[in-house]
């Protein structure tokens, strides 16, 4: 399970921003730190980052939306990422993605209605010699087969 995220709190957000604001090119570092704390990047944080770094809101919003990693809203309790890149495709990854989608009843890129599982694509975990591979809440799993993907999906629904 992912460590429980804190609920959004303006003072806490300001503290995190201040902690990193002096770094060269701090925007990504701050966005990562906020997401680490709150599980996503809450909307009110954007103007706060902008004012701390002397940037426009549009600039910060642009950075936030450019990168796939940053979330607008919290993910499900578990995040299951399945690699969709070529080496995993070659090792039968597509069929396993379809299997996970069917079991969870959602398409990849979505969260189940009970908010337990977010299923996401990832383009390469660098485990290409033990493909297909996945990451469940930060834990890596390689050499996926039907039994392993079923076990991961079951774990992600708890």
């Amino acid at each position: 399970m992912t460590p429980a995220s804190e609920p959004w709190d303006t003072a806490r957000g300001a503290e995190i921003i201040a902690e990193h604001a002096d770094l060269e090119g701090a925007t990504l570092v701050i966005l990562h730190a906020l997401q680490e704390a709150f599980g996503y990047v809450p909307e009110p944080a954007i103007p706060m980052i902008a004012s701390a770094l002397n940037l426009s809101r549009a600039e910060v919003h642009g950075v936030f939306t450019f990168y796939h990693d940053f979330r607008r809203e919290p993910a499900g309790r578990h995040v299951l990422k399945l690699c969709r890149a070529e080496a995993c495709q070659a090792a039968g990854g597509d069929a396993l993605v379809a299997r996970a989608e069917a079991k969870l009843g959602i398409g990849i890129g979505n969260t189940t209605a009970d908010n337990l599982t977010t299923l996401e694509p990832i383009y390469c975990l660098g485990l290409c010699a033990t493909a297909p591979s996945a990451m469940l809440d930060g834990r890596l799993v390689g050499r996926l087969d039907e039994a392993r993907i079923d076990a991961l999906v079951a774990e992600a629904q708890r």
Binding site: E24, G25, A26, T27, L28, V29, L31, H32, L53, E59, G62, V63, F66, Y67, H68, D69, F70, Y123
Partner: peptide, 25 residues
């Protein structure tokens, strides 16, 4: 160490530099 944020294009050197500067890649 600086950590990327899931953009493949940031492997391109000038895009990576933009990202390091805290901008869109």
């Amino acid at each position: 160490v600086r950590v990327g944020a899931g953009a493949y294009v940031c492997g391109e050197e000038t895009s990576l530099l933009e990202s390091l500067e805290g901008r869109r890649g």
